[in-house]
């Protein structure tokens, strides 16, 4: 299938460019590690307080950090494609017979691989701090994070190509990513929030993904929470992939 071949070509090129300049990968991973080291201990002290979901502090906190990594990392990839568009790379690829979906999917695949590596580093570090989760839970957690990251990347590329200007893109990303993260209860669980805030966060699909990963980390895998979270993650990927592909195809309108 030329779609898979094209995706692979676009992916290898993008990956090579990322590996050439690993600085931003390192910055991306150092941030959650700072959270682990500087915020984790605080949380540990209050994790037993009433209103906290079951599980120890790390089981609550690490899933939140993973989602933050996926959502923030994913939303920011759009900056890269604006630069590529400006350099004429996007147009050069669009004039080739390559599948439009492959042109974006290859880049998203690169983002997902980078994310997975970052997530593994994060989980391993968290284990040194005291996280204990079964191996299967880690694998499932990473799969959910990969889907989340993929949808954030697809959306980010779509928005970036729609505006084509870093100056316009930066405020858009911030104004979307920040409420999403705050309303997902990544730092503190939403069960601590007043009712109106809980209702707001219930509308946020990302919150359910965080909840699902927390359940997975408690080894409560076959539950409604996990089912809902995984279902939402799959739906997000499908919608985002559609929107992203559309935005690539729209470049030739």
């Amino acid at each position: 299938m030329t779609f898979f071949k094209d995706t692979w070509i676009v992916f290898s090129r993008a990956m090579r460019l990322s590996l050439q300049n690993p600085l931003w990968v390192i910055i991306g991973i150092s941030q959650p590690i700072l959270y682990l080291a500087l915020f984790g201990p605080l949380l540990q002290a209050i994790a037993g307080a009433p209103g906290f979901p079951p599980g120890d502090a790390w089981q609550i906190f690490v899933p939140g950090l993973l989602v933050q990594l996926g959502v923030f990392g994913g939303f920011f990839v759009g900056f890269g494609i604006i630069a590529e568009w400006r350099a004429g790379v996007i147009e050069r690829m669009l004039v080739s017979p390559a599948s439009r979906t492959a042109l974006i999917a290859g880049r998203v695949l690169r983002d997902v691989i980078v994310l997975i590596v970052q997530a593994i580093i994060l989980v391993v570090c968290a284990m040194f701090f005291g996280l204990s989760v079964p191996f299967i839970a880690i694998v499932l957690g990473l799969i959910i994070i990969a889907m989340l990251g993929a949808s954030a990347s697809f959306f980010s590329y779509a928005m970036a190509l729609a505006v084509k200007s870093e100056d316009a893109f930066a405020p858009i990303v911030n104004s979307i990513a920040l409420p999403i993260l705050l309303l997902s209860g990544i730092l503190l669980p939403m069960s601590l929030a007043p009712v109106w805030l809980q209702t707001l966060s219930d509308i946020n699909p990302f919150k359910h993904v965080v909840t699902a990963i927390r359940a997975v980390f408690r080894n409560e895998i076959v539950t409604g929470e996990v089912g809902l979270g995984v279902g939402i993650a799959i739906a997000l990927v499908l919608i985002a992939a559609f929107v992203g592909t559309r935005s690539f195809a729209n470049q030739t309108k």
Binding site: I9, S12, R13, L17, Q20, A87, G88, V89, V95, S96
Partner: peptide, 30 residues
């Protein structure tokens, strides 16, 4: 697309990419 080549007015390469690798990956898309 399969049958034409196009060289845009304002350039087609990004500074960080290696010339040979860009040529090969572009050809592979065909």
């Amino acid at each position: 697309r399969r049958r034409i080549g196009y060289v845009a007015q304002s350039g087609t390469t990004t500074g960080e990419a290696v010339a040979g690798q860009e040529i090969v990956s572009q050809a592979q898309l065909y």
